[in-house]
Nucleic acid binder design. Structure first.
Lengths: 217, 217
DNA sequence: TAGATTGTTAATCGATTAACAATC
DNA sequence: TAGATTGTTAATCGATTAACAATC
């Protein structure tokens, strides 16, 4: 029961981008937008944009286009941003703190309930009204507090262990910043931000930049 | 002259991953690996791995496999990691500092030469032996110091302006953390890390997780 | 109504996988 | 030599684009 449409990864990656541009249009006070106008802004073909949106429903009006406010709301709903999430950050080093502040600053439903670390020097500290707790309490805390998402900012060596605790505690998803591909059971969503991979891809692109386009200088 | 093979983005994204696993094998002292063994570890098909590698050359030996050390070196070379890069970080807030420390810690050829900000309170500060300078000096500094890569950690509103200065100064690539799609001329490589997009994709995945796999509990 | 633009099907393109000959 | 595994071509699959009928 429940036929899975199974949305492709390519589409999943484009959805937040649609959201970003629609949010921008909204702040500009734009009321209506066509797939062609979106195409010009975002860079995807109008055809692809219509295909993507129609994966989830009929949000437009023939001969008119899409209402910006409505489409923005729909995409938020599709992305699951019409609710709040309870999160914890594990590993409160530079990156962990940056992510904590970042999430705090751009807060749109991802609430950091707890911070965890193994370093006794920072356990007990408070960051943005949240206390840093001992990692040994992680699983219990996640379970008791009904945490939805664990954010992993520990080093590679400890990342899988932390993930296991989070999963045991019952998180539904993990946002991973450790440079390792975590193993998670079915039913747990995993999204990794591999910063060094990203930097290495940039390095590749620099090296393989078309030298032709470089000519005028 | 110079027929462009034009490596697909899909391959570019896999290369750093190959590197990561080969590095891991190397630390384990493994000398030899086959495409099948790699497949099991990384999760790509053996066929794809061989295809990918053969885009750049013949690195293996029939009937034997690949020498780990050699392949690791080759991939480093392909990625352009056989040289050093001079970088600057613009925007020394939480994220900028985290990236600075991160890059400093995992230093493998990406040297941060200068830090820039507009906030008078932190201009003049030193982080990891690098001084925070005024953004007004950015373009001049980039040109004089021959900076290769600019790392943008400012907010969305100022990101394009910073990018323009970096490009005017002559950077070859930009690593962008601002939540905006920067416009850059041909010949300048751009790699963006859209943290909120990543988080939103995670949210989507959590929402659309196969409920079947959830059944046993 | 005529013009515009969506929703959707069909065609194309590119990326992945399978197969196997080459060869170590 | 026989067995193994690459390099590479051919087949398949999936994603993107084009086209157009539906309809506002």
């Amino acid at each position: 029961m429940g036929n899975k449409p199974k949305v492709s990864n390519a589409i999943i990656r484009r959805l937040p981008r649609y959201r970003r541009y629609l949010g921008y249009l909204q702040t500009k006070g734009v009321k209506k937008v066509s797939s062609n106008e979106l195409s010009e802004m975002i860079g995807y073909t109008a055809s692809q944009i219509r295909q993507d949106l129609n994966t989830f429903g009929e949000f437009g009006q023939q001969g008119y286009g899409y209402e910006v406010d409505k489409l923005y709301k729909e995409i938020n709903r599709i992305l699951g941003l019409d609710r709040e999430y309870r999160t914890v950050v594990v590993g409160v080093g530079n990156l962990g703190q940056a992510i904590t502040n970042y999430t705090y600053y751009y807060k749109i439903g991802f609430n950091i309930m707890g911070l965890f670390d193994v370093n006794p020097k920072i356990i007990g500290n408070w960051i943005n009204d949240v206390e840093v707790m001992d990692c040994s309490r992680l699983e219990e805390y996640v379970r008791k507090e009904g945490i939805d998402i664990g954010i992993i900012c520990v080093n590679r060596e400890n990342a899988q262990e932390v993930a296991d605790s989070l999963i045991e505690g019952g998180v539904k998803g993990i946002w991973n910043f450790a440079p390792i591909d975590l193993v998670v059971p079915e039913g747990v969503a995993i999204e990794s931000v591999h910063l060094s991979d990203s930097l290495h891809a940039l390095s590749f692109m620099i090296k393989n930049m078309d030298p032709e386009s470089d000519r005028n200088r």
